[in-house]
Design a protein around this nucleic acid. Structure first.
Lengths: 299, 299
DNA sequence: TTGTGGCGATAATTTTTAGTTATGGCAAAT
DNA sequence: ATTTGCCATAACTAAAAATTATCGCCACAA
């Protein structure tokens, strides 16, 4: 016994509406025998007569009437599936899950979220801030659509796009303002305050100073750039922060900002997503928005 | 562009459950390429990617997840259609619309309804009592499944089954009890009370008396057998009623019952339905119940 | 009665769709 | 570098659904 098909249900609906095989077949754009056969098979599948045929009339049986009610709902639901798909096709709409590293998020998100919701009102933004390793894991698992991190990530499963480069700047106590800017190497002799293990920026900073991250250090780690800057203001030491954090973090702290001479330390910020992501196209558009938001912050 | 099919939705569901083409294909009892192709066509139909395929994983897209929810409901509804059909197959269940003529209904229905609901609890009985002409029309239009009427009806679109014959009896004032039973012909000279125009029993009675129904008569028509009997009790005249009505109608009236000698007047009661009725089989079973109920009344 | 016309069923055939097996390619793992 | 697992593609076969042609029934008219 063959299976129930949507086609049969559609033909059934046409016939129940027209109560005439010929006209129903026309409505379905098929020949009358094709309709007859499909209706017959439908009835055989169900083991129930749906229509009563007499020489003069075609009429739904009482079972057929009840059947028709349910079929109507089913066909409507099916058509809605297609509608739903079409609606979701509207570019840049629907849920978008972005992960951002902590040394970018506080400075980039305000303008980024504003820009995205303004230009793409259909977007349902979900933002998650955490360390790079977790972001990569979540993107891999499909729990995030994309992440904004420092490049390179070098995972072959990901597409990487570069967004912008940002320099590192030295934050010193206010009293040090105007003193010559030390080199990376000479930072090793100062009390350099860094983020906790796991932050990519910690490693980037250490690398600039040519320090092995394995070297044990006591009590000099902060959990955020903001904390580090406050510690500098309290005279505990000096720190490095990315350029983008400068306006926010130095606004209300008694510190001075020093920029390095070339070769200036810097990092590249980029966006990544799974190469297999179905919204790769949309993500590329999003990445342009992110770049603009970043450039604006850096200007 | 081809159409969405239930098959595709079923395959989609399997794949969304197994997240693996090979295993999902097994579950559907088809080969892996067949599944791949159908899923691909589904995605092309919708114009949306439902699954994200990477070398290691198959995963629903976020659209796919939403899609899956709806698909689940749709497939359940479709399966229910088949269930519904199967359930309706249980003989003698579901709605049954019976029409009955007024000169039978009050006497037959109590025992008939009791018997039917007792022996076939699945039945949803709808009973309508009206004149034969209306019953025939409603059966023809499919608004009734069957009707209990006096035969013959002689409509080629109907199946007729004879149920039982019932005699006509003469109802006279109590004072006439024991007097010789008059012949049909001699009734013409008495004040014969009859039902209104339209009742088949009126015509049957007139025919027994060899009276043309066209003959005008003044003020002697009653709207029910009960009224006629009451009128007889009041000394207004005599009347004929069918045998089946005797126990009920003469119980509390000051009248006498006289039965005719052969050839005794009688009529045949039967059941009719459209030859094309899908429940012809069930109706034949029902007709046996009706016959039994009738015989019981006549006993 | 005897056409006759409308209408649905059936038959024979073709076209379309779905499925099979065989094979390819790619990324991950050894 | 090679193997392995897994999905996609190709070529081909089987099954399903159309098409056209035709039949048969029944109501209605001549």
């Amino acid at each position: 016994m063959a299976n129930l098909t949507l086609r049969q249900l559609r033909y059934f609906q046409a016939l129940s509406r027209h109560a005439h095989f010929g006209r129903a077949a026309d409505a379905c754009a098929i020949s009358q025998p094709a309709l007859s056969v499909q209706i017959k098979e439908l009835e055989e599948n169900l083991g129930v007569q749906l229509f009563e045929r007499s020489a003069r009339h075609v009429r739904l049986t009482s079972f057929g009437e009840e059947f028709a009610l349910r079929v109507r709902d089913i066909l409507r639901s099916v058509d809605e599936l297609a509608d739903m798909a079409r609606a979701s096709q509207a570019e840049l709409a629907g849920r978008l899950r972005i992960g951002v590293i902590p040394t970018i998020a506080p400075y980039l998100l305000p303008s980024l979220v504003g820009a995205l919701t303004r230009t793409h009102p259909g977007l349902d933004l979900h933002i998650r801030e955490t360390l790079t390793s977790k972001l990569l894991e979540e993107v891999t698992e499909g729990r995030l659509d994309t992440a904004i991190v420092a490049l390179p990530v070098s995972e072959s499963a990901f597409t990487e796009v570069e967004l912008f480069a940002e320099d590192f700047v030295l934050i010193r106590p206010e009293a040090d303002a105007g003193k010559p800017t030390p080199s990376g190497e000479s930072l090793r002799k100062m009390r350099l305050l860094l983020l906790e293990e796991g932050h990519c920026f910690r490693d980037q900073a250490l690398s600039f100073c040519n320090i092995q991250s394995a070297v044990p250090r006591e009590g000099l780690d902060g959990s955020s750039l903001s904390t580090l800057v406050q510690m500098v203001g309290a005279g505990i030491g000096v720190t490095l922060i990315p350029e983008m954090a400068v306006p926010v973090e130095t606004r209300s702290a008694a510190v001075s900002v020093a920029r390095f001479d070339a070769p200036r330390p810097s990092r590249t910020i980029g966006m990544i997503w799974r190469k297999t992501s179905p919204i790769a196209g949309q993500l590329r558009v999003i990445s342009e928005c992110v770049r603009e938001a970043g450039m604006e912050q850096l200007a």
